[in-house]
């Protein structure tokens, strides 16, 4: 699964014959970006101003955790929780530390999820947002701990929890300790649930593997972004198992909506409003 997602990120620029005849113009390298949906080059500025949506085909670009919080939380209300981030390396896995440093540099975050409290149109909530740029949002012991602490805090203070998921699943480099995080986070949610509190998940691209098979699927209300890949097993793994090609929309948010596993697909323009509305209804 991870592998597939990683590979999708590789953008290849084809050098056609026509390109050679073009006069040389100095274009800043980051002025254009290629849409992962239609493949067309689009102005980065246009994408940014449209909440990271392709102006050509409407495909949603992945949002960073920081961008997401800016989209959802009322300005100045987000207060991150302090987390003591001590990475464990239970397998003594070769180059894991280097990989973590690289991921931190790529994402600007110490781990693949952030947590904090905020207000959404004045409604208090505890919010966790996963960061796909950090090792594809994979869940190791630190991610599990950040989520669990935030949920426990919510249970104690009787606050709702909102989690934006984006993850390739359990983090392979921590072996079984990663798998245990699925039970740990789900257990914390079970207690939050028993306390009669609201939990909303928003599934974003991609949400797969051990994250789908734990907290992503446990929301009282499950929302998703259009076109998001959401599933348990990797596409390639399934194709190898059944020896058939899968249809294009298999494991998309739309597919899940049709099969009855999510409540609604919500545009970025309406996400904040929708969350605020739901929070108000559960006061």
């Amino acid at each position: 699964m991870l592998k597939e997602i990683m590979e999708k990120k590789k953008v290849q620029v084809k050098k056609g014959k026509n390109n050679r005849k073009m006069p040389k113009v100095d274009i800043p390298a980051d002025m254009f970006t290629k849409c992962p949906g239609c493949g067309k080059g689009v102005y980065r500025k246009d994408v940014e101003s449209a909440k990271k949506t392709c102006p050509n085909c409407g495909k949603l670009f992945r949002m960073s955790a920081v961008e997401r919080i800016a989209l959802i939380a009322d300005e100045g209300t987000y207060v991150p929780f302090k987390n003591d981030i001590k990475h464990a390396d239970p397998l003594g896995f070769p180059e894991y530390e280097a990989k973590l440093s690289k991921a931190a540099a790529a994402s600007g975050l110490p781990e693949a999820v952030v947590s904090g409290k905020c207000e959404i149109s004045g409604e208090k909530a505890i919010i966790c947002v996963m960061e796909s740029k950090f090792m594809m949002g994979s869940m190791g012991s630190v991610v599990g701990e950040i989520l669990t602490s935030a949920i426990e805090e919510a249970t104690e203070r009787r606050h709702p929890v909102i989690i934006f998921t984006a993850s390739g699943g359990a983090r392979m480099q921590e072996g079984m300790v990663s798998l245990m995080q699925m039970a740990k986070v789900s257990g914390a949610l079970a207690k939050h649930n028993e306390a009669g509190l609201l939990y909303i998940t928003v599934l974003t691209d991609p949400t797969t593997g051990g994250v789908t098979a734990s907290f992503a699927s446990l929301g009282d209300i499950i929302l998703a972004e259009k076109g998001a890949l959401v599933g348990f097993a990797g596409r390639r793994v399934i194709e190898q198992t059944i020896r058939q090609k899968l249809p294009e929309n298999f494991q998309s948010a739309e597919f899940l909506l049709e099969r009855g596993f999510i409540d609604a697909i919500v545009d970025r323009d309406n996400q904040k409003e929708m969350l605020a509305k739901l929070l108000k209804m559960h006061k």
């Binding site: 699925m182 039970a183 789900s186 257990g187 949610l189 079970a190 207690k191 649930n193 028993e194 789908t212 098979a213 734990s214 907290f215 992503a216 699927s217 446990l218 599933g231 348990f232 097993a233 990797g234 793994v237 399934i238 198992t241 059944i242 899968l246 298999f250 494991q251 099969r259 596993f261």
Partner: peptide, 26 residues
């Protein structure tokens, strides 16, 4: 492992496992 197939995904393999984890804890 849990089965990786079309029907399994269609019927919510992830949800079924997640539900067990949460419910078993309680």
């Amino acid at each position: 492992g849990a089965y990786c197939g079309v029907g399994a995904e269609e019927r919510g393999q992830g949800e079924a496992i997640a539900r067990n984890l949460a419910e078993m804890m309680q």
